[in-house]
């Protein structure tokens, strides 16, 4: 890619190819579950690890802030709101952008520089249908699942911290968590994370399939996929906050 013009051309071609690829179900259907496992299920430990420490830090930070007029049960409010609305989806998305984006970009980039993608095209198999569509669909479907688990783990770790390290009971923590709860808090985070998954996988595939120049090009594409994936997550986060909140 030498400039914005070429980038826009490629993007347009990708939209057209995506429509064709989605219609080619038999080609991508077999790849969907393996990709869902690889991009989603295998990412659960990373997301849980991030969520555990997010919950702990949130509980401790909020107790540090709520020292005067604000009652301590607002620790539950802050942990629940922050984990469900923002930190759960965004931090999970960031972690998965590194793992999934790098994985996808490196895999497809290697296939591109070793001419495996050319071989698929020679066999009349659309790389978009066989490689891109299952990965994008898998990430779009599995990111919300992983995020939901991360939210639950973040809340639990925040509760555990509040009960064991702060002068707070389970009842008080739950009272705070329920104080300003709205079901929108949950689905808002899940909708965001689905869009994050789609963006991360799409950018990883895009960078991978457009990798040039051997191993160095693959490395460059991988780095760019991760960086762009993180940036896309932040941009989408702001977009959803504007649109849905």
């Amino acid at each position: 890619m030498s400039g914005p013009r070429e980038f826009l051309t490629l993007s347009g071609r990708w939209v057209v190819e995506a429509r064709r690829a989605l219609a080619d179900g038999p080609t991508w259907r077999g790849q969907l579950f393996p990709q869902m496992k690889k991009l989603g299920v295998d990412s659960v430990p990373v997301a849980v690890f991030v969520a555990v420490f997010t919950g702990i830090v949130l509980a401790l930070l909020s107790s540090y802030m709520f020292t005067r007029a604000i009652p301590l049960y607002f620790v539950g409010t802050l942990v629940a709101k922050a984990v469900m609305l923002e930190l759960g989806p965004v931090l999970t998305g960031m972690a998965l952008a590194g793992r999934v984006g790098a994985n996808v970009a490196a895999e497809l980039g290697t296939m591109r520089v070793t001419e495996q993608v050319d071989a698929l095209e020679t066999l009349a198999i659309s790389p978009h249908a066989y490689l891109v569509t299952p990965r994008v669909l898998a990430a779009t479907l599995m990111f919300p699942m992983v995020t939901a688990l991360a939210m639950a783990v973040g809340l639990l770790s925040g509760w555990f911290t509040a009960v064991n390290l702060l002068d707070l009971t389970s009842v008080e923590f739950l009272r705070g968590a329920r104080q300003f709860y709205n079901f929108k808090d949950i689905w808002f985070g899940l909708v965001k994370s689905a869009s994050f998954g789609m963006a991360v996988a799409t950018l990883g595939c895009f960078q991978g399939l457009n990798a040039r120049g051997g191993a160095e090009g693959v490395g460059r594409a991988t780095t760019r996929a991760v960086v762009l994936g993180c940036q896309a997550i932040l941009v989408l986060d702001a977009f959803w906050a504007l649109v849905l909140l």
Partner: peptide
């Protein structure tokens, strides 16, 4: 095994969402 792992993950995530919504929303 892929299908089983994915299915378990989806089920657990859905259960977490439903139980969390019920518990927090009382």
């Amino acid at each position: 095994s892929n299908e089983f792992a994915v299915g378990i993950t989806v089920l657990v995530a859905a259960a977490v969402v439903v139980i969390g919504a019920i518990a927090l929303g009382q």
